[in-house]
Structures are given as structure tokens and as C-alpha cells.
Design a protein around this nucleic acid. Structure first.
Lengths: 332, 332
DNA sequence: TTGTACGCGTTATCAT
DNA sequence: ATGATAACGCGTACAA
């Protein structure tokens, strides 16, 4: 790879002049500028980003670390991050250590080691606590998305899971349903608890019956919710509405209900959370009503926040909270 | 961010000793090593990657540029890239200029500007020719995946589309089908032509009837194939087998056939290419037989190739070609 | 308009 | 065992 020195030699000028040309700065005669540009083009010369960033103390790029790049649920998030970065003329780099904590931490070291001006980490499960704390203790600009750790004093983008669950439950109540249950998502995730709490609060506020039978514990997949709901129906205890803590368990509930011959939403209204899609490909589900996370907007906000932080490194950590949006489709 | 100089001062030693400790090298007294490690830990110090890479002329990271990160078709590719990079202890960074050529080229400049040891570009459409040529003319290590440009003298990972199409067609012939047609995918892509050629060659070799009615021109989506097939069936010209140049048009064909009351695969056998999934969510398709691209293996090979090139910069450009694999499901 | 000299943070070479 | 010094490639005061 040619360096600025090579270009300077070939053009018979000093490196200073080449640098001026590269950065469109004045102080170069038209003649020299032309010759320098020719030499640059001829050699396909591009300034070394490492050296440039090192001296400028600015990389103009942002790193993103996610626990999974291969999940279409995150597409809106990725698009939001990309759009905001493109708009601000920043490079945005995605990387993922997947389920390997050591790999994740290595990427954090990489991203915070000077190669980027700031980093964004996405994660919502307890496993990510270690990651988030590791990011937060670095003295670099960082934004954490989705998970709220009170001891991490960095910028954060959060979803109000409690409020979303409350909204969904309230909607079912106002639709006139009398026997509403909640099917949880994975309670190993923060979101599981928050959504359960939102459900309970709404039921309480509207003085709806709330007992041990009001909650069915499932996880983030279809299967357990399917089994639990099947069992519940077999016992003859049939609710008339169900708020699920995530779409995957909601599809499990739907599957059980459809197998039992229930008509949706007449016999059972179902509303999920996340605007996800079913795992099962061998069954045709009705379009699921759900609470949609504004992931696109959250991604955009994440980049905006990190850029603001880069430009004002000394400001206090900021938190931006987003509300999930009720999307009514054919199951409610 | 603290620097090595800060650490050295705080530990009352020279930068040399700190560097030795950081890189686990001998030549430091146990006492000093201990104190230096303490200071490092206390300050959460991480060496600046820019400076380190600059002096070492080695970044230990690989960049990947794809025209779309938000497409689950590429998941196996991404996983292959990640697995191989992880195994070789390289960082792997994903970026995408999406449909904006200027953005793509900017990312190429970034990735080839010293921040990575090499880059991998994926692309199969004609639009990517400009991108690929731009990558190839850089004097950095690069691997191009999927698209074959003869004037690009870089490492390449290719799929033998001709052979895959031949295999699929041959399979249909050997199954005893007499009236086989080909529904093309987008002919603006290299792959479209290669797969058409493979079909024609197989039909020719087996002396199967080949006329103007043997080919239906569609694109990379369901709709046109659906319309074309619907029209064809309405004309009463019903083939007994169809090889589609991609899965999306194959689903379009299936949709038209199913609407016409045809039984699959008894009345019409269908085989696609790519192991993709349907666009339509309102219809339940049978599991499609297809030619699966070994994208995971291709991704792994891409990283292996680039690392080999990094270690042997002077070797001749290498090409590795992969065969698609016939996956027989319920449509043939 | 042009060029010299210094510094960005690190590693490596060579003294001590 | 320890430390001064020179690179890596670039931008930028400052001097000419």
C-alpha cells in the first residue's frame, strides 16, 4: 500500500501539500494540486485510516455489538442504526460474539480500544449483565440498548415493558373480556418480569379477577406455552383472552387453541409482544395482534445519542425510553 | 482514555516495561510486573488498537461488506464467516452500504484503508460489478464471494450455478418427467443466465424436448412467476415438472399450480434453487425441493482464503468453487 | 505557496 | 532488568 510519503515523492512535493489536497484545504498551487491528484488516482491511494484516526483522535465510526446478527427480529434495529449513522456520515460496524462471553468481551476491547469513537451494545437477557458492566466501566462513549442496569452510568435506550404490558392488558379489558390470563415469556430476562408486572397492575387497577390461574409460565419459544395452554384447556378452564409476554409463546397458545377447535378471536382473544413471527412453518396462523417495539426508532436514537455523547463527552448520561405500540390484527 | 505513558508514570517505570507486561514478554522483574498489572487493572487500561496496529502493520481483523445485512438468506454465510474468524482468532466486522453505491465504496475505502488486514465482499448482481472492481483494484487482500468477474484478479469463492441447474434438471428427467420447463430467476443477475444454461444443457444431453415454451421468464420474486405460470396453465399447456432458477419464483409457480387445483408433486413437480422461503404468508406451501447453496461453507472458505492471503500476500489469486446440494422435500 | 518538525500511542531495537 | 530512541503514516503548527 502506498503512503502519503510515496505520493509526495512521486509528485515532487512535501507530504504537507499532499495532505492539504487530500483534505481539500487551501494553500496549494493549482498546478501542484492537479499533479498530486493525478498521482493519487494513478496509485489508487487512500490515506491510512489508522494513522489518520490516531493523529486526529477521531475515527468517525461507531461499533455495534449484538448477541446475534442472525435474527430477523433485529432487522428494524439494524436499519435504524444504519440510517442514523449514514445520515451523520459515520461508519457503522456490526460485530457479535454470539453466545461466547469471552468473544463478546474481546469485541468490546476492540471497539473501545480506539478503533471507534463510541460503541452501542444491545442485549436484554441477564447474561448480558456482565457484558454491559464491562462496556460501562470502559472510559469510552457507550450506549446500552434494552437492558437497564442501574449501576451502569452510560447512555441508555430502553423500552417501557411495564407500560406496554399494561396497555395490552387494558385493551383486552376494555374489549370486554372477563377471564384474562397472562402467559409469560422467559422469566430469565428482565422483560419477562416487567411485562408480568404490567399485566398484574392493569388487572388490579381495573379490579379484574387475579388468581393463581391467571398466569401461565412459559418461555421465549412456542413449545412450552403450547403445552401449558393445551393442559389448561384439557382441564376445562378456558379463558376468553390471553396476553402473552412475547409473540412466540402467543403462537404456542394459538396453536393449542386452534387444535382444540376454538375460534379466534371469538372464543379466545390473543395479544402478544414484540411483533415477531411463529417458529412453526407447518401451520397457518392468523395475523397476531401484538405490542410492537419501535426497534427502528430505538436504533436511530441509539446512534443519535452516541454521536451527541461523542460531541459532548462531559454531559451527564442520558436515558431515552420508548413505548411499545399496540398493533391490532386478527387475534383480538 | 489512559495511555501506556500514563500507566508507566503511575507505576514509575518506562513504557517499555509496560509494553512487555501487556504482551506477556520476559524481561520484567516480578515486582515490577505485579505493580504494573495493578495499575493497568485499576485504570481499566486497554492498549490503543490504532497505535498498536499502526506499528505492527497488523490489525487482526477482517472486514465484510454485504449489500444487505437484513436478509435471513445470508444467515448461514454470516455464521460461516464468524465461525472461521473466531477459530483463527480474528475479529470480524460486518458493514453494508445497502443499495447506495457511494456508501458501499466508502466502506470499501474504510476497510481497505488500514483498519483491517483484509476484506471480503459478497454480491451476486450486476450492480455489484462496480463494487467488486473497486475492491479488486485496491492493493489490499480481498476475497469476492458469489460473483465472478474475470477481470478481477483477487481470491474468489464461487458457486457452480451451471452445475447446480444441471443437477436439478437431470434429477427431474430421471424421475421420469417428460414435459419439463424452466422458470428463470432475475436475468439481470449472473446466476440467472448460468442456471438457464445448466437447464438447457441437461435437456440437450438427455435429448429432451426444448422449445420456446420450455422457458418462462420471471425474476427474483414470486409475483411474475405466479402470473406467468397462471397464464401458461390457463392456456392449457401444463408441464409435469418445473425447475425454477430460484426459490421465490418456484413459490410463485406453486401458488399458481395450487390455485389451479393441481396436486403437487403428482401433477407438477417443482424444484427451486437457494433454499429460500416464500414471501407470501397467507398461503401454506408444501416444503419445497431445492438446490441448497452451501453458504455456511462458502463463508468459512472466504475467511480461510483471506487469512491465507494475509499470511502469504504474494501467492497467486485462488478460486474455490462450491456445488449446490440437491435437497428433496415434498414438491418432487 | 511551500516545507520542517513534532506528536498521536504503540512496539522493537539497541544500549546500559 | 531497564530505558531511551526510532519507527508506523498521518495532520498541523510554525517557519521560510
Amino acid at each position: 500500500m502506498p503512503t502519503i510519503t510515496d505520493i509526495a515523492h512521486e509528485a515532487n512535493v512535501s507530504r504537507t501539500l499532499v495532505s492539504r489536497v487530500l483534505n481539500n484545504k487551501p494553500g496549494v498551487s493549482a498546478e501542484n494540486r492537479k499533479r498530486i491528484l493525478e498521482v493519487i488516482a494513478k496509485n489508487h491511494y487512500v490515506p491510512n485510516g489508522l494513522a489518520k484516526s490516531l493523529v486526529l483522535q477521531k475515527t468517525n465510526s461507531i461499533g455495534v455489538i449484538m448477541d446475534d446478527l442472525c435474527n430477523d427480529f433485529f432487522f428494524p434495529l439494524i436499519r435504524g442504526l444504519q440510517d442514523a449513522a449514514e445520515e451523520a456520515d459515520y461508519n457503522i460496524l456490526f460485530c457479535s460474539g454470539r453466545r461466547d462471553m469471552a468473544a463478546k468481551l474481546k469485541y468490546v476491547d476492540y471497539l473501545t480500544g480506539g478503533c471507534t469513537d463510541g460503541m452501542i451494545a444491545y442485549g436484554s437477557c441477564y447474561d448480558d449483565d456482565e457484558l454491559f458492566r464491562y462496556v460501562a466501566e470502559k472510559s469510552t462513549n457507550s450506549v446500552l440498548i434494552e437492558n437497564n442496569l442501574n449501576d451502569c452510568h452510560t447512555d441508555k435506550i430502553l423500552l417501557d415493558n411495564f407500560h406496554g404490558a399494561y396497555t395490552a392488558t387494558e385493551y383486552l379489558i376494555k374489549q370486554g373480556h372477563k377471564n384474562i390470563i397472562h402467559v409469560t415469556c422467559d422469566m430469565n430476562y428482565d422483560v419477562g418480569l416487567e411485562r408480568l408486572n404490567g399485566f398484574v397492575q392493569a388487572m388490579h387497577d381495573y379490579k379484574m379477577p387475579l388468581g393463581p390461574n391467571s398466569i401461565l409460565y412459559a418461555d421465549h419459544f412456542e413449545s412450552i406455552a403450547y403445552q401449558q395452554m393445551k393442559k389448561r384447556l384439557a382441564e376445562g378452564k378456558q379463558p376468553d383472552a390471553c396476553f402473552a409476554g412475547a409473540d412466540k409463546p402467543a403462537f404456542g397458545v394459538l396453536r393449542a387453541a386452534m387444535e382444540a377447535g376454538l375460534s379466534i378471536p371469538a372464543d379466545l382473544a390473543v395479544i402478544g409482544f414484540d411483533d415477531d413471527r411463529p417458529e412453526s412453518k407447518d401451520i397457518l396462523f392468523p395475523a397476531l395482534s401484538t405490542m410492537r417495539q419501535p426497534l427502528y426508532e430505538m436504533g436511530k436514537a441509539g446512534v443519535e445519542l452516541i454521536i451527541d455523547k461523542i460531541e459532548h463527552p462531559d454531559r451527564e448520561p442520558a436515558i431515552r425510553t420508548f413505548d411499545a405500540e399496540l398493533v391490532v390484527r386478527n387475534t383480538s
